[in-house]
């Protein structure tokens, strides 16, 4: 709240403002970051373990193991979302569970499950990408611009 606005308030209101500010629960930024770090790191370490699993038992290289790893992570996220565990993790970890692909999977899958009662076409089909849609849109558009600029720069600018 800006100071100028506050001058127009009565003394009682000003007092209340101070009182409110004191009592307002501050977001525990540091604690949240710590949690996000550990849970996010843990999810990535699990991903690393899965990619080593694919490399060791199948003919995947470090380069190609990424795709099956991502698919497996999304699968795990489906199970955890379905039994309601992922939401608990998300409450605890915040961005730590939202930023990895499992969070992307969770957003899609939970929306699909939630809107199932509205039918498969109108419910599941059209609500699935409610949150993930913006990620796909901006990701795709940004990638288009970046790739276009780079291609033009390399082809005609002689860069690269």
């Amino acid at each position: 709240m800006a100071n100028e606005k506050r001058k127009n308030l009565t003394p009682v209101q000003q007092e209340y403002h101070l009182f409110e500010k004191e009592r307002e629960t501050k977001r525990p930024v540091f604690k949240n970051c710590l949690r996000a770090f550990f849970v996010g790191g843990l999810i990535c370490a699990v991903g690393q373990a899965i990619s080593y699993f694919y490399m060791y038992f199948f003919d995947f290289t470090e380069q190609t193991a990424g795709n099956p790893t991502v698919a497996t992570m999304v699968f795990l996220s489906m199970i955890l979302t379905g039994i309601g565990v992922y939401d608990r993790i998300a409450q605890f970890a915040g961005a730590g569970s939202a930023v990895p692909v499992t969070g992307f999977g969770n957003a899609v899958i939970s929306a699909a499950i939630e809107h199932r009662t509205e039918g498969f076409v109108l419910g599941v089909g059209s609500n699935m990408f409610k949150l993930a849609g913006s990620v796909i849109l901006f990701g795709t558009f940004a990638a288009f611009v970046v790739a276009l600029v780079k291609t033009i720069a390399v082809k005609w600018g002689g860069l690269g």
Binding site: V39, V46, A49
Partner: peptide, 15 residues
């Protein structure tokens, strides 16, 4: 919930 993740990690990390 945390225990399940922990177990998952342990299970995977052992390999």
């Amino acid at each position: 919930g945390m225990m399940i993740i922990g177990l998952l990690l342990l299970g995977c990390a052992r390999e």
